[in-house]
């Protein structure tokens, strides 16, 4: 089994061409994604922002092979999303930590490793490594319900990192946390991204969060779900929290807001 796949730097890691997805619901068909074109290259930190119903989560789920597009093409590492999933190309972090309450934190992190058939020694080593990455050393023996919400979410990030996939897909991972904890986790996530050089797809509905974290911001609008703007951030990779008071930061935030308004996101 191939776990690491070296990709030439210039080929896009995620490549979507005129992607469409229509759900059939009781009230008729709903177009969740309309003509989505997007290329994400290795090492990008891409945020998807927009109001609920704009298709940002749906797009991420398409990349993960959890939803199947109705038409268009989508490749992940040059493979179909399903092949990429089988090759364990990405780690996925959900809105809630979703840790199994009957497993300790360490055994939760081991879960994907057990499924993928790692050896005992390697499992132990990787668990230690990712616990350190998310600053949870010494908490491996605790059970999820003994941790705070922020710590639980960090454990779930560690779980997604444990098998060392090149891509990290995060669906509003900090949405349920308070702002103070969220700021702290944002800082940590940036550091982690710089250290590991992963490609990150990050869904959020917070404008400051998107601007603070991303190298590329994808602004989306609902009915039908579509991309209204793609912004390449001029901010440097090294970003202290107070960068949020800088001129550049405020300008980008403005542009995001304009993009949302243009897409009637506030209606």
């Amino acid at each position: 089994m191939e776990r690491h796949r070296k990709i030439p730097v210039m080929t896009p890691v995620i490549d979507a061409k005129s992607l469409n997805l229509t759900f059939t619901t009781k009230d008729g068909p709903v177009q969740a994604l309309k003509d989505v074109d997007l290329r994400i290259k290795a090492g990008d930190f891409v945020s998807f922002i927009g109001p609920s119903g704009c298709g940002k989560t749906t797009f991420l789920r398409c990349v993960a092979g959890l939803e199947t597009p109705t038409s268009g093409s989508l490749t992940v590492n040059g493979m179909t999303p399903d092949e990429a999933r089988q090759a364990r190309a990405y780690g996925y972090v959900f809105q809630a930590a979703g840790l199994y309450p009957w497993r300790s934190v360490a055994r939760n992190i081991r879960l994907p490793l057990e499924i993928m058939g790692y050896s005992r020694a390697e499992m132990a080593e990787r668990v230690e490594k990712v616990l350190k990455l998310v600053d949870l050393e010494g908490f491996g023996g605790k059970y999820p319900w003994q941790l705070s919400g922020g710590m639980q979410q960090r454990a779930s990030i560690a779980r997604a990192l444990s098998f060392d996939a090149d891509i990290l897909l995060m669906d509003e991972p900090f949405g349920a946390l308070d702002e103070i904890v969220r700021d702290h986790l944002n800082e940590q996530l940036l550091k982690l991204w710089r250290d590991t050089q992963k490609t990150i797809g990050f869904v959020t509905h917070s404008i400051p969060e998107a601007v603070y974290l991303s190298t590329k911001i994808v602004v989306m609008s609902p009915r039908p779900g579509r991309i209204t703007d793609v912004i390449d951030s001029p901010l440097p990779p090294d970003r202290p929290l107070d960068i949020r008071d800088s001129r550049d930061f405020i300008d980008i935030a403005h542009r995001v807001r304009d993009g949302l308004r243009a897409g009637h996101a506030y209606d």
Binding site: R61, A64, R88, I115
Partner: peptide, 27 residues
């Protein structure tokens, strides 16, 4: 659904998701 999706992202087999997820959750 989220817990099942998680198993899906790992490419877990039905037997694996039964033993690791659904049986403990059913207890």
């Amino acid at each position: 659904a989220m817990q099942r999706d998680l198993m899906h992202t790992y490419g877990a087999s039905p037997a694996q998701s039964l033993i690791k997820l659904r049986l403990p959750a059913a207890m």
